[in-house]
Nucleic acid binder design. Structure first.
Length: 473
RNA sequence: GUGGCUUUAGCUCAGUUGGUUAGAGUAGCGGUUUGUGGUACCGCUGGUCGUGGGUUCGAGCCCCAUAAGCCACCCCA
């Protein structure tokens, strides 16, 4: 190693380093969420970052498959590729021969695998939470990364609506603890499904178009529905549900599905009346969840939970209630989302277990809290006191004093860096250390110190170590 | 997958119509001063100007290619 090649330090795209102060803030969010999860009986699990590729592929649609990070097989990974396919040079076809593993794309599919695989060892309904990084080979942009954390709680094996209500309570409590003002938007996949079917297009297409409403506006949405051959006149309905809608209006909404009201066919102007028990039940469920928000103190005072017909995004596996949380007064996408899914465990040969879950988008929650200045001062606190030896001859003595504080369970540090005062105070500032004590010959002789508050610059003279311990404990 | 922007010191950025040896601030290192202090002063290190070609007597600057990063679409948290 005579010559070391210098490499410019840089990160892979869409990934980030975190400074100590940032980690402290992130942990503050994680800890808050974990506390609430546990309070509601959810237990933490872990699964590997790496999954078999066959576990992951096909679960997120065609788009999703493209965004999977695949891990190259070890060894001579080309040897299993048939020669004719190598010759063609189609990398997509070759993938299955050269990569058997991938990085997880979310925490839900690993959960489905986990539940089926360990069903004998789990207590059902299985309530778990899981916090960890996931990876997507997406093009990064603001608030979107290739490596990011998800923070999920799910209930598997119970289809009671109380689960939805409990999860809503978790949303409300977490955001209250974080002092974040939010709005929960709620919708039901069955409602979208009926409206899509009656209009003669697929739910996915219907959902994708509706979801853009707040971005592109009503006219554009109606145009797009026209373009794909959607049959029902939606003008009134959409106009009515553009703004946040409250529980009473959800009851009205029911009238679209119980034969009371109807839609007009665009082409024939014929009246189309829908009778759908599924959609009626969906409306009732949504109304129940919205009403239940009043069980929550904040929820009863503010209009926290709103029906929103245009909330339609999300992965295709949702089948029941879907929801999304947005922060009030901040320009930012959703900061949490979730819903009920019915068929997830089937893919892994499990019996059909219903699941419902929520997910916190902690990267965005972080950004919002930073923007609104909601992080408490105390979370990035370093040790309580920094002892600074004036020169090398008193280092050992200084260390002994520090160790006394530590024995008394007071976090303390000895400063062994640059002797410049500027550096020492920078150190306390960066690490948010409340007190500084300088140690020189005088202190060694007298055993008395001067305790200096690094923020207020107040000093307390002639104080002994045991007095410092008393003061700081 | 589509489009736009950016790339010069560890970081933030100057750099004139193409013209000597590429600058500043900041951080880092060293020193001066100060026994009760933090904002002072002096000095030093650090760059293959993203990379590879081309035009030119001469390129950080012009042209082509390429890479990386960011931003916006699609989609998503």
């Amino acid at each position: 190693m005579s010559e070391v090649k210098k490499i410019k330090p840089s990160l892979s795209k869409g990934t980030r380093d975190f400074l100590p102060s940032e980690v402290a803030k992130r942990n503050y969010i994680f800890d808050t969420i974990k506390t609430v999860f546990r309070k509601y009986g959810f237990e933490e699990i872990e699964t590997p970052a790496i999954e078999r590729l066959e576990t992951l592929t096909g679960k997120y649609g065609e788009e999703g498959d493209k965004l999977l990070f695949k891990i190259l097989n070890s060894g001579d990974y080309l040897k299993d590729v048939p020669k004719e396919e190598l010759a063609v040079g189609n990398s997509q076809l070759a993938t299955k021969y050269i990569a058997e593993k991938g990085l997880r794309y979310d925490l839900t599919v690993p959960l489905a695998r986990y539940v089926v695989q360990h069903q004998d060892d789990l207590a059902f309904p299985f309530k778990r939470f899981h916090i960890g990084p996931v990876w997507r080979a997406d093009r990064p942009q603001k608030g979107r990364y290739q490596e990011f954390y998800q923070c999920d709680a799910d209930v598997i094996g119970s289809n009671s609506i109380i689960n939805e209500i409990e999860l809503l309570m978790i949303y409300l409590e977490v955001f209250e603890r974080l002092s974040l003002k939010v709005t929960v938007k709620i919708n039901h996949r069955a409602i979208l499904k009926v409206l899509a079917e009656q209009g003669g297009i697929s739910v996915e297409m219907f959902a994708t178009i509706l979801d853009k409403l707040d971005k592109v506006g009503l006219d554009s949405v109606l145009d797009e529905l026209n373009a794909v051959g959607y049959r029902l006149k939606m003008n009134d309905l959409l106009q009515q549900f553009i703004q946040g809608t409250h529980s009473k209006q959800v009851h009205q909404f029911e009238n679209y599905f119980n034969g009371t009201w109807g839609f007009e066919d665009k082409a024939t102007n014929e009246k189309i009346v829908i009778n759908s028990n599924e959609a009626i039940k969906a409306c009732l469920d949504v109304a129940k969840v919205i009403n239940s928000s009043e069980l929550h103190e904040e929820g009863s005072r503010h209009n926290l939970v709103q029906f929103d017909l245009t909330l339609a995004r999300g992965l295709n596996y949702y089948t029941g209630i879907i929801w999304e949380v947005v922060a009030n007064n901040v320009q930012m996408g959703s900061i949490a989302s979730g819903g009920r899914y019915d068929n997830l465990t089937e893919m892994f040969g499990g019996q059909n277990m219903s699941g419902v879950g929520i997910s916190f988008g902690i990267e965005r929650i972080y950004d919002v809290m930073e923007e609104l200045n909601l992080f408490p001062e105390t979370i990035s606190q370093g040790v309580k006191v920094l002892f600074v030896p004036r020169d090398q001859s008193v280092e050992e003595f200084t260390f002994q004093q520090v160790q006394q504080l530590r024995d008394a369970n007071i976090p303390a540090e000895i400063f062994l860096g640059n002797v410049k005062k500027q550096k020492q105070f920078n150190y306390t500032e960066q690490k948010n250390i409340a007190y500084l004590v300088e140690v020189g010959e005088n202190e060694v002789q007298s055993g008395k110190f001067r305790l200096r508050n690094t923020k207020t610059r107040d000093t307390q003279n002639d104080i002994t170590v045991s007095e410092i311990i008393q003061k700081l404990s």
